[in-house]
Amino acid sequence: MEKIVEIRDLKVDAGKKEIIKGLDMDIYANRVNTIVGPSGGGKSTLLRCLNRLTDLEPGLKVNGKVTFQGKDLRDYDDVELRREIGMVFQRPNPFPMSIYDNVAFGLRIQAKVSKSVIDAMVRDALEEVGLYDEVKDNLKRQASTLSGGQQQRLCIARALILRPKILMMDEPTSSLDPVSKGRVEDLIRGLKEKYTVILVTHDMSQARKVSDYTNLIYNGKTVASSEGTEFSDIEDQEVKDYLGELAE
C-alpha cells in the first residue's frame, strides 16, 4: 500500500490544553482511511491540521512532522494544499447561493476555465455524488432548499470538483437520517477508486461498512491501527472499555 500522508509525533497545543499529544499515523492512497475515537479526542483537530485550517486559529500551536506525497506540509502553499486535500464537514454547509454556484465555487476561484468547462465539471461532480439526476432541472435553485442528505452530497461534490488527492470527511453522516446516511456511505466506498478518503467517525458500524484501514485515536494519540476494523493489540484497559462501549 502506498502511503500518501505520514504523520509523526504531531502535537497540537491549545494553550491550556494539549489536544493532540504526539500522534503517529499513516494514510494510504486510494483507501478509505477511517479514524475512530471518542469525541473530544482530537479527531477533528487532526483533520484541520492536514489541510492547515489550524493556521486560522492563532491560539493553536502545531508541532511535529507531517508529509504529504513526501513533502513537508509546511512547505506547501496553504491555498494549493487545500486544493489537493478537500474537506467535508460534520454538518452540511452549503453557501447561500444556487446549487450550481456552490459546486462551481472552488473552481471559479482556483482555476482559469471557460464557462463550458465549468458546466461540464459541475455536472461531473454532481454525477459523482449521485446528485445530478435529482437536481439537474433546477441547478439555479438555492442550495439551502435541498434536504440534509442532498446538501451533504452537494458539499462532497463541491470538494470533488477541485479534483483533490485526498478527501477528508469529518463525521459526514452524523446529522443525517438513516437513508441519507446509507447513500453517503455507499458513496464513500465508491470514491476510493479515484481519491484517498480520510473518514472521521465515532460510529463503529459505519467504520465496519466502509473502512479499509482503521486508526483508533484515544486521548490525543493513535492507540491502535489495523486493516479492517479489528484491533487485537490493545493493552490499555481504558481503551478496551471504550471499544467495548462502541461495540454495544
Binding site: 502553499d77 491555498v79 494549493e80 486544493r83 489537493e84 476561484i109 482556483q110 482555476a111 482559469k112 476555465v113 468547462v117 461540464a120 465539471m121 461531473d124 479534483r163 488527492k165 479515484k194
Partner: peptide
Amino acid sequence: MINSDMHGNEIKWKRRSSRKA
C-alpha cells in the same frame, strides 16, 4: 494530481502568485 476533467481536458489552475498578490 488529476489535472483534467473527466473528458481529458486540462484544467488550468490559476497562478498562485496572482491570487497571493
